[in-house]
Design a protein around this nucleic acid. Sequence first.
DNA 1: CGGAGATACTTGAAGGTTCAAGGACACCCT
DNA 2: AGGGTGTCCTTGAACCTTCAAGTATCTCCG
Lengths: 172, 172
Amino acid sequence: MQVLEASSKRYADGMEPTRWLDQDEQQLWRRLVAVLTLLPAEFDAQLQRDADLTQFGYGVLAMLSETPGRSRRMSELAALVNGSQSRLSHLIGRLERQGWVRRERAEGDGRGWRAVLTDAGYDKVVAAAPGHVAQVRSLVFDALTPTQQSQLDEICTALLARLDPPCPGSAC
Amino acid sequence: MQVLEASSKRYADGMEPTRWLDQDEQQLWRRLVAVLTLLPAEFDAQLQRDADLTQFGYGVLAMLSETPGRSRRMSELAALVNGSQSRLSHLIGRLERQGWVRRERAEGDGRGWRAVLTDAGYDKVVAAAPGHVAQVRSLVFDALTPTQQSQLDEICTALLARLDPPCPGSAC
DNA sequence: CGGAGATACTTGAAGGTTCAAGGACACCCT
DNA sequence: AGGGTGTCCTTGAACCTTCAAGTATCTCCG
């Protein structure tokens, strides 16, 4: 996944020369990319097949189901599931059409909306959850030792420190 | 990301009762989902911004650039980058329109095609690589200690063992 | 009060992915 | 030879996400 030669060409002033990945780093990177590709694909496939849901859609419904009042401000919800407002807005539109969610004006702020889980929506998540959790268990937890699980937890924490609040590469 | 109550309802014969995730497992799962969501998004954003490429598109071009002859059978290429044949076919169509790849009949097998990286395509990857590698370094390697890197490598290996060759949940 | 600027959300179009179907060719077996 | 079956790849439609506007409302401040 990387151009091979660490070419010795000149580089502009102020440009750091690229530090290419060494053998071990390349191996890790390739494996990580594979996991990043295949794992979500499996979850999407299972949810699609068994519940006609995206992982993102499931995540939103589940998040609502766990929230007191089973509803959230759109922007809040978007942040919780790591999606853009636009993405969420489109999704909620679709979920609304299926009767699993409804929109409600947010009180106190005329600009805001809340996504509210309907009873049908709640039933939907409850029905979908066992299959999804089984998949998570089978593809993640069953594959890792308890030690690896806590290692992975710390690794994710470290990675998120650079991903979650701060902006990509720029100064924040 | 999970329905809260471990409901004590009856289940059909032969159905295992769902083993819900405990506190620690839920925490890990949430973090992992966040990483699975945000990390690819960052890479896609950077590549889109700086090179007008998808991570998948970059991966394909890079893979070709590393291959002797700078070409691969479509099916082979699809497997290497963990994509479906259809996805690859559409992508190669787009890359071909931009002049970075061209299709060539595979010799020996009248059904087959090879994707061949053009010179322009090679220049394209070479131009895109430094920015991408910098991003990988900044978001992954700089965030992890050497120990964590080798832990992650083993974790990925363990996860891939259940993902790569075998089918999802069914018998193979 | 009133206007500038930020915030919350939506919308339509463009682009990418999946899914199901289809065409061309290879392989196998009689 | 030749017909059934499987493999390699493409295609079009449906779906989802992103991107760039656009609308409505709030906040701040003179």
